[in-house]
Amino acid sequence: MDENWRGNLPQIAARKTGKSRYSFVPLFMNELNIQNLRVEIADREIVRGLSLTVPCGEVHAIMGPNGSGKSTLAKVLAGHPDYHVTGGAVTMDGENVLELEPDERARHGLFLAFQYPSEVPGVTIANFLRAAVQARMPEGEELEATDYYAKLYEKMELLGMDRSFTSRSVNEGFSGGEKKRTEILQLAMLEPKYAVLDETDSGLDIDALKTVAHGVNSLRGPNLGILLITHYQRLLNYIVPDHVHVMVAGRIVRSGRKELALELEERGYDWTREEAGEMAVR
């Protein structure tokens, strides 16, 4: 792979218009596209033919019962080596994601906020993020320390984080809420094109939830597509999604507008299961 590929531009093709003038149109849509994805772990199929499209600039929420495969989907997108993709395709702005290494996917603009972020003993947040930002720079170019810290402190302020966090080891001894905030801090620093947020709201108290939602909302815009995994419709009051999808047993069984989340809150998942069952029979 070309390590230096990091453009925000969609791939383009020239099309002849009229006389001898050319205009450029995207050959691929700017979107994260998942087609009929199948994933196994330990010989068990967890994701079972899932299709989903997140256009850049939109926020899509996924809700679904425990064990339905939401985190598996998130980790497969990020390239976790334990999961085995047995079928389907994933593209990001037309580029085949599945053939990229996890770190390449990230450098090409994919980000995952983990449901259970790992602890990295002895590595400070400052050094960790610095390495991540440095990894996105062209070979031979050194990150300017003062610029880096200015940006880091700005983002920390946005997320209501104390500066002393920068010298603590990544996630070591962090409270659940602190871990989630740190994930969003990384999102803010790394400026991906597509971000998957896996239950970033769980474990947050109401004030932290508002702060984190504010942080995410401030990043929202035409250059970022977000896939939001959550159990609680409450989060969606703060980060209002463009679309809501219901995932059951490894598939998207229903999609709708944000009102779907309210309906789920009221009725639970059983009715979607039944409909999914009907779908399978048909």
Partner: peptide, 18 residues
């Protein structure tokens, strides 16, 4: 832990060093 670092764009060699 290794996956976590790589998911941030850090190459395996640098991740190992960190």
């Amino acid at each position: 832990e290794m996956f976590y670092l790589r998911s941030r764009g850090i190459t395996p060699a640098i991740a190992q060093q960190l």
